[in-house]
Computed example of a mutant assay.
Amino acid sequence: MVFKSLFSGAKPQQNDSSDTATGLNARDLARQQLMDDIGHFLLGNDLEISEENLSAAFGICSGHDAELARRVTERRAAGQPVTQAWLDEQCRHGEDAVERMADKLERSLETFATTSRNARATAAQYNSEMQVHVDKASEAEEQAEILNLAELARAMLERTKHLEQEMHRSEREAATLRSNLAKARRDADHDHLTGLPNRRAFESLIDQHYREAQASLDALSVAFCDIDNFKSINDTHGHDTGDRVIQAIASSLAKISGDNCHVARHGGEEFVMLFRGSGKKEACQQLDEVREAFSQRNFINRRTDEPIGQITFSGGVADVFAYKSPREALKAADVALYAAKEQGRNRIVAA
């Protein structure tokens, strides 16, 4: 389903005869239409071509995210623009909804485990008391009525023992589910390739430190880092080598991380860092020391033993409190990063 009302500006007319002439089937045409719709949505609303925006645009244009599509349609119907800040906020609301759902599930699992635990304890106590009565009834075998009662009691005892075992199994299953949920939450906040926090986790982190640093009057700086000529590395030596390069830079950046310095993989070959208690100049110096040390290393393609040579990265740093919000500071650091690229790469530039 295509949400044509989401786009601003006129779209070029499709020529059915040209589609027939090129031999495109219905599936190809649908895929081409979806690509066109995504492009018109991003360009028509003056949005960046980023991983997050492409994902949001795909959800909107394909109908996979009907709720977000509905909000976009309502906003445009009200005559309001679909800005980057507004779209970011809507996507964060979606993540918050998932987090709330996970919290609710965790609470339900805890309640279920507690109920099962209490029921099992009650069943165990009942089993003990029933066993006493069964033993007493078995001692008086000369009385047929008592024997019948003993047989009935034994049957009841077996059933309650089985129930106790089932409840114990339910407890274990609930504990396993809680463990899996906790792991899923950790996985959702970490990048699998590098082991670093991902963009989602970093956004929560920067919001937390922004509030705390404001209250305590601490300095707060943010940095963007990007591997130089990474596409060339991938094209020449393969994606496996590219992944190892990403891991190597992640490891180098992580060495300076701690309580007051946090690093995350922002996506692709890009990393983002937060420096608590460090001004822009000090953060630049810390990051530049890592850059200098890393640029002295020489890499080799493990598969072919061919030398890769020097690998470098560039960075941009911004003072968070010099801007209206942490996200404005991130944009400034990103601009400084591109300035570093334009100045020849392998350098750190302050915003």
Rank of each mutant, 00 (worst) to 15 (best):
V317E: 04
H239L: 07
L217F: 09
L181C: 02
I249M: 15
A121T: 08
G44D: 00
H262Y: 05
R172Y: 04
A283F: 01
A137D: 09
V290M: 04
G59L: 06
K4A: 09
I249G: 02
D191S: 03
F321Q: 02
S325V: 09
A69Q: 07
N346S: 06
R327L: 12
G59E: 06
L54S: 02
R185K: 13
A78R: 03
L330A: 05
Q165T: 12
A264C: 10
E212S: 07
I38N: 03
N301D: 15
R120T: 08
T304E: 12
H239F: 04
T22K: 11
D46I: 00
D319H: 00
N180Y: 06
G44T: 01
E48V: 06
A250M: 07
G94K: 13
A329T: 00
K281S: 13
F321L: 01
N45M: 04
Q125H: 13
E328V: 09
E145W: 11
M167E: 09
Q143D: 15
K341T: 07
H192P: 05
V134K: 11
H266E: 08
C261F: 01
R347L: 15
D103E: 12
V134L: 15
Q90F: 09
G39I: 09
R265P: 02
A140F: 15
V72P: 03
A77P: 04
T122S: 14
